[in-house]
């Protein structure tokens, strides 16, 4: 038996733009998270589609959903189906590439985003069913988070004390950490910390964290339940 506790609104819901919770709603959600990781100022994006996303994206409107997410549109917003026009109005260019490589999950997309300052941010994620998603890679570094919670992502130097300073700032603001993971490639090199929280992380807290010595960048991804 499934021991998960289901809410009534998990069953009767979500409200969404069709046709598919995994190929449409989940796709929009993934791209919206990627937009926030890229700092909300997307200029150009290339979507690399894998497996089932590559095979059925047109008929499921996955392409429109991805572009909608990239320009900040939620999965239940009716503007989703006109996202191509809206992106063009905002001078955001986009393209789609079908990959024949295998992915860890059939509904996977890699988003290569260029922002207005010229930085390139690469985000990989999968839509795992029912509109739920998992983010798996940021700039080649493995991560794992779902967007269900308010998520703080830091890019920092892998050195002692940084994590303590971040959690101190959060505790001073009474922000409870639900889950926390740290990822790094090499010792002493750049690392990524992902903190999922029950509460909203306000902008002033994010700025305080970004100002911690050794932290290059701090991003907050809104909880998808907040929308």
């Amino acid at each position: 038996m499934d021991l998960r506790e289901y809410s009534v609104f998990d069953i009767m819901g979500p409200v969404m733009i069709g046709p598919s919770s995994s190929h449409t709603a989940g796709a929009a959600r993934l791209a919206k998270i990627a937009r926030q990781i890229a700092g909300d100022d997307v200029k150009e994006v290339q979507f690399i589609l894998y497996d089932s996303f590559a095979n059925t994206y047109k008929g499921h409107g996955t392409d429109k959903a991805l572009v909608a997410g990239i320009i900040g549109i939620d999965p239940d917003d009716e503007r989703l189906s006109h996202s191509f026009e809206l992106a063009k109005e905002q001078n955001i260019s986009f393209s789609f590439v079908k990959s024949d490589k295998d992915a860890s999950h059939p509904n996977t997309v890699r988003m290569v985003i260029k922002n207005k300052s010229g930085d390139v941010i690469e985000v990989l994620g999968s839509s795992i069913g029912g509109g739920n998603v998992v983010l798996k890679e940021i700039n080649g570094m493995s991560v794992e988070f779902t967007g269900e919670y308010e998520t703080l992502i830091t890019k920092h130097i892998d050195k002692p004390g940084i994590i303590a300073m971040v959690t101190k700032v959060l505790s001073e603001h009474m922000i409870n950490i639900a889950f926390m993971r740290v990822y790094r490639q090499l010792k002493g090199d750049m690392a990524i910390m992902v903190i999922e929280s029950d509460q909203t992380i306000p902008e002033d807290v994010r700025i305080r964290i970004e100002h911690i010595d050794g932290i290059e960048k701090a991003i907050v991804v809104d909880s998808i339940n907040k929308a």
Binding site: G13, V15, M16, I17, G18, K64, E78, L80, G130
Partner: peptide, 11 residues
Amino acid sequence: AMGKIVAAPTA
């Protein structure tokens, strides 16, 4: 047709 619906229980 990419309209708005309630997944009940699925789309």
